[in-house]
Simulated assay, not measured.
Amino acid sequence: MDFIRYAERSAALVNAELPDDSALREHLADRTWLHDAVVPGDVAALHAFRAELRPVFEASDADDVPSVVRTLNDLLAGHPVTPMISDHDPDDLHMHVANRAASVAELLIGEALMGLATLVCDLGATRLGICSAARCDHVFVDTSPNQSRRYCSDRCSSRANVAAFRARQRRAEQTRSGAHEPVTQPRAATS
């Protein structure tokens, strides 16, 4: 099991627009073997789960460790994970977070919870965040060595950096143009 990848997929799940089964299949573009297993109830289950999962990212972003732990524990209790050893390749036995009878939604929920729980235990409860870009509310997983990530994507980071650069340029221009204006002295009163 690649728990970091599962944690990152949990953020992608929270950020995903999933209006229907087709959108869920699109979300699973890199996992085509799951496409045929998608059933109508999966989308509704994932919508409900996403609403339950977002507070974990919000609490982490606010450095509220007790809330992160409590919420994840509540979700783990509400969505029990049933791991199994996979033997589809006898030379590469490995764990799956759901058994063969699990729905796609149950699989994604299990991966998200196990990924986040492991990440929180291994890297700390403040490694999840909400994008700092002005018009973005996407969540992300911060696996950077110095826990410095502030944006959900390179795109949001670039936009924020460009906006900050332009703001600095405007301030510098205003300062330069203000410094070169002649200073006028008030006229002396005449009687």
Results as ranks from 00 to 15, higher is better:
C121Q: 13
D36I: 01
P182Q: 09
V81N: 00
R9K: 12
G41C: 04
T143K: 13
G129R: 09
A98L: 00
A189D: 10
R127G: 07
G115T: 02
S60V: 07
R70W: 05
H94R: 15
R5S: 12
H47V: 08
I85D: 00
L113I: 07
L28V: 04
G41Q: 10
R54D: 05
A29G: 05
V43F: 08
L24T: 02
E173L: 12
G178S: 15
P40Y: 07
L18W: 01
A125N: 02
D122I: 06
P186S: 13
I85M: 12
I4W: 09
L72E: 01
A164R: 14
P66Y: 04
P80W: 00
L75I: 10
L72G: 02
S153K: 10
R100M: 05
L53P: 02
R155S: 14
F165D: 08
L116V: 05
F140S: 09
D61V: 02
G129E: 04
L34Y: 09
D74W: 02
A105Y: 00
A59Y: 07
G178Q: 13
A163E: 08
T184C: 03
R171H: 12
F3N: 08
D63T: 11
P182T: 08
A59R: 10
V68A: 06
E181L: 15
F49S: 03
L46A: 08
V183A: 13
A164K: 13
